[in-house]
């Protein structure tokens, strides 16, 4: 990654109760200006605490957190001027209409009176909410509320936009819209940070991902870099019609085969250096109907489970 660090987190510790457990037990990372940075981890791993520290809502027990060079503990106001947060659950101002939410938010951040309303209208249009500007926000659906929160966050042109599990409650259309918006924002130079347990989302959006568990970072890399952490899982997955196992002669780089039968189909995981093309030939030679054939590649989910284990939290 190129560019300067916008967020620096160094030796962050947080203990909520004097003798309680540490929610965050020494975290270090930096977020580079212009990237999408993901914080991935199981529930209770310390993601929300870490975000709280960056957004000035959690006071670090130890360590230093800075945004654009400003210490969150000593210069919270300067930090707040540079960031915006999209929370998990709507926190819109329910006494106000949609457009009033945006106009007053802009006022909190010192936007001049004459430009507030026009900018709010532009922003509503960009988020596809122009027809609902004068509706009270409690009539909004979950997806609309979130789009309005994005509009609100962008009203004061933050350098860093933080999204806390943004797609957990969204329908597929809203989710796609959000992903497009995030990519678009990054192109405009906004730095984004998100927490999620959605692997597809993390894989698709993030430039770099920190995997957090038990209050520490256990891996930090690009999605591809993280996938390479999996123990070598080379091979081909094959599904053919008929219950009987596929006959595989020795050689061809086949090391081992795991097969199972389901609804009169045989599924096999063929490990080793064998290629998909060679396996296709073998299926044809055995005169079987080929249903599915794919090269195995670790998913981010595999990496995640590999790193954090299967225990429930």
């Amino acid at each position: 990654m190129s560019g300067a660090a916008l967020v620096e987190v160094a030796g962050l510790h947080k203990r909520y109760l004097a003798h309680g457990p540490e929610a965050v037990a020494g975290i270090d990372f930096s977020i580079v200006e212009g990237e999408i940075f993901g914080l991935l981890g199981p529930n209770g791993a310390g993601k929300t605490t870490t975000i709280g520290a960056i957004t000035t809502r959690v006071k670090p027990s130890a360590g230093l957190v800075t945004v654009d060079g400003f210490d969150v503990a000593r210069d919270a106001v300067s930090v707040k001027q540079r960031i915006a947060v999209i929370p998990q659950r709507p926190n819109l101002d329910r006494s106000l209409t949609a457009i009033e939410n945006l106009v007053f938010h802009a006022a909190y951040f010192g936007e001049p009176r004459r430009t507030r309303r026009r900018r709010a209208e532009e922003m509503l249009e960009r988020m596809g909410l122009e027809g609902r500007a004068d509706d009270k926000v409690d009539t909004y659906s979950g997806g609309m509320a979130q789009r309005l929160m994005i509009a609100r966050a962008l009203m004061h042109e933050p350098r860093l936009l933080i999204l806390d599990e943004p797609t957990t409650v969204l329908d597929p259309q809203s989710r796609l819209f959000l992903w497009d918006t995030m990519t678009d924002l990054r192109e405009r130079g906004v730095t984004l940070m998100l927490t999620t347990h959605d692997m597809v989302e993390a894989d698709r959006l993030c430039d770099r991902i920190a995997v957090v568990d038990h209050g520490t970072i256990i891996a930090l890399d690009t999605p591809r870099g993280l996938r390479s952490l999996l123990p070598a899982e080379r091979g081909v997955e094959v599904t053919v019609a008929g219950a009987q196992p596929l006959e595989l002669p020795g050689g061809d780089g086949v090391e081992s085969v795991e097969g199972r039968v389901e609804e009169d189909r045989w599924h096999g995981r063929v490990y080793g250096d064998v290629t998909a093309a060679r396996l296709a030939e073998l299926v044809r030679a055995a005169d079987r109907d080929l249903i599915e054939l794919r090269r195995m590649e670790g998913t981010l989910e595999d990496v995640f489970v590999h790193l954090t284990g299967r225990e429930l939290r």
Binding site: R57, K80, N91, D93, Y108, G110
Partner: peptide, 8 residues
């Protein structure tokens, strides 16, 4: 309250 707490 969050929107107020994050105001500058």
């Amino acid at each position: 309250i969050e929107d107020r707490l994050l105001a500058p």
